[in-house]
Amino acid sequence: MRFSTLVRHIREGTKNVFRNGWMSFASMGSIIVSLFILGVFMILALNVDKLASQIENQVEIRVYLQLGTEQAKIDDINRQIGRIPEVKKVTFVSKEEGLQRLKENLDPDAQSALDGYENENNPLPDAFDVEVFDPQKVADVAKQIQAINASDADQPILGVKYGQGTVEKLFKITNAVRNVGLIVVAGLAVMAMFLISTTVKMTILARRREIAIMKLVGATNSFIRWPFFVEGVLIGVFGAAVTSAILLYGYSWLIRTTQYDLGLMLIKFASMQDVGGFIAGTLLVLGALLGIWGSTVSVRKYLKV
């Protein structure tokens, strides 16, 4: 193909968007409606995912040591835990700190109940707080920490706690929520295809004459396809751009107007930075693909003459 022919196809495809005014408008409308619904659910899914991660990240492992474990051994265990690949951070919590934290969690009136347990009377064991990279792996990491005992006759680890049972249940729920989100988004994508294919069917009828005439003057199939392809991409990308703009503007408004109310409830929306690029990028690619798909389907049917 000559370069000037390519320019011609792009020019012609662009002109066709305007020439077929209401049909372009209808196609763009169905792309905007589909992508809008899809985008709303994607933002919802992103937020649910963020919320789930927030909850998951609060999951921590607490490792209790035998009373009277020597400092050298404590350091050694600290190092051994730190060497497990999934472990992000190990923090030593001395029994004094443990008591302090316990106190802070009580009502001020009740705090006096713990008076008299300081220093040599402190019944708490020394402990480690262990953070892991992937909260879903806590059970596994806990087992590995417990296993340190096996290579030590003193059995220095008294116990490993991570909210056994509760954590597993939490993950079941967060994973289920994510999967449902994914299924809903996939379902909406299919629905969008149906909506657009209906529009395409309407436009095909109007375009078959045009294709027949192009064939009559000796246009090759690829010559006929190109402007339709350009037209499809333009309609899809423009529709996606409009949708992204509406969605992201609406979302930033939502964040702004609700930040004080929800801030008190410790819930935070996924930030604009988290959502913006992802939504706009995904919608633009989807829009272009839907446009190409629509135009390809509409032409293919009438090329076999």
Binding site: M1, R2, S4, T5, R8, M214, V217, G218, A219, T220, F223
Partner: peptide, 11 residues
Amino acid sequence: SFAMEVIEASK
């Protein structure tokens, strides 16, 4: 003119 574009004639 479009019948001539089809045969890729020059502008």
